[in-house]
Design a binder for these strands. Structure first.
Lengths: 219, 219
DNA sequence: TTTTATTTTTAGGCTAATCTAAAAATTTAT
DNA sequence: ATAAATTTTTAGATTAGCCTAAAAATAAAA
């Protein structure tokens, strides 16, 4: 059975909602992420259910079947491997690759993606620190904590970002605060959740609460 | 103006027909190559004409506008560069890459393809010996002659194939007669256009008229 | 607990790309 | 030059994916 690019995009969005711990993805949540009307979502969800990729109970949101989840996972694998390719081999910056990977992730061949994986040296994380599923769909796990949960005096290394929008990533580049940066918390300001940090043992900077919330560090 | 994948495929097919020296591409010729009905072709050709990508006079076939030709050329560029990537970097065989390249050629970013070009070392020919247009759309030319036009005693190097179907390429692999092979014509048999050749200065083999017709050599 | 607000679904329509069958135009052959 | 064959176009239908507007179901508030 053939799965269209559009269907794949819905599976990805549903997967990303379920991944956040929700028991099911609501029509509205999906329509917001997909930038389509709620009516279109209902349409598509029924089609996915008919293809045994999703489970849909009227007015109760949608879940993915095992197969639906596998497809979504392979899309993440492809997306993230292509991002590594674009950054490592074609020298793009981490904030430039998302759109291209959105297209590349729909290329079919499993053999190709497995070879790409090994060509890239079987990376475990993409340029934003997100884990890359292996050929069987297993994600690497890593002990990581959002910066806002760190206490004064604690140290860590930036290993991921919660959000990978271009403006946020460019802002991090400006701060010189990319993946691999060493951070020590010097002060925390409760009234706006900002913090003063020592960056790479050399530079003291103040970062906002939003940045603290969106950076993942390994202690 | 957005151009769909389907429209791109039509442009490619029309371009390939015009490339063979035809003054215009007929509805029937296009429908055969596209595996669709003639009626669908008429429909699409009108759409392409409305978008100023093609010129269509009823019952007189279709030509491409400058822009239509440019788009087709960029598709060839993308297709052939991806084929080089798949063979040189991911170690696929020359007969395995066509289908994957058919998908990859529709990825948009011009910046990406230019970087891919330089990552691959600006190759001038793809794994089948077909010329790769540069970023401005210029094709490399090369003095090449089909093997059937060679005379007894003449020598040459295989630089291209007229047809790149999987069975033909696999057959060439079996004969050990890939790109770069050195060939000397020992005998020509007129009754069926077959020939006896000395391959790589070491092995004498007989090849059929069809093979002679489909191999391009540089003298 | 009834009213109000929100969410979801249904109904009906649109466009791109396809099809088959039939009509019109062109080409080939007698 | 007219008939026959072929090619091309038109007409009308279909499917996927989308829309808006209205109806139905559920959740929130008074």
């Amino acid at each position: 059975m053939k799965i269209s690019k559009t269907e794949e995009n819905y599976l990805k969005v549903i997967f990303s909602i379920l991944e956040k711990g929700k028991p099911s993805a609501s029509t509205n949540a999906i329509s917001k992420k997909m930038q389509t009307s709620a009516a279109s979502v209902t349409d598509m969800v029924k089609r996915l259910a008919k293809k045994k990729l999703a489970i849909h109970e009227s007015h109760k949101g949608v879940k993915l079947t095992k197969r639906g989840g596998q497809i979504a996972t392979m899309l993440l694998r492809k997306h993230r491997l292509w991002e590594v390719f674009l950054v490592d081999k074609l020298d793009f910056l981490w904030d430039e690759v998302h759109e291209m990977a959105e297209e590349l992730e729909h290329i079919q061949s499993k053999e190709m993606i497995d070879r790409l994986d090994s060509f890239l040296g079987n990376p475990k994380f993409d340029p934003h620190g997100d884990p890359i599923p292996d050929a069987e769909g297993n994600f690497a796990t890593r002990q990581q904590t959002p910066l806002n949960e760190f206490k004064v005096g604690e140290k860590g290394t930036v290993v991921g970002v919660r959000e990978s929008s271009t403006p946020f990533l460019q802002y991090l580049d400006q701060l010189d605060l990319g993946l691999g940066s060493k951070v020590e918390i010097l002060e925390k300001f409760e009234y706006d959740n900002s913090a003063k940090i020592l960056l790479n043992k050399s530079k003291e900077i103040v970062i906002t609460g939003k940045v603290c919330l969106n950076l993942f560090l390994q202690k």
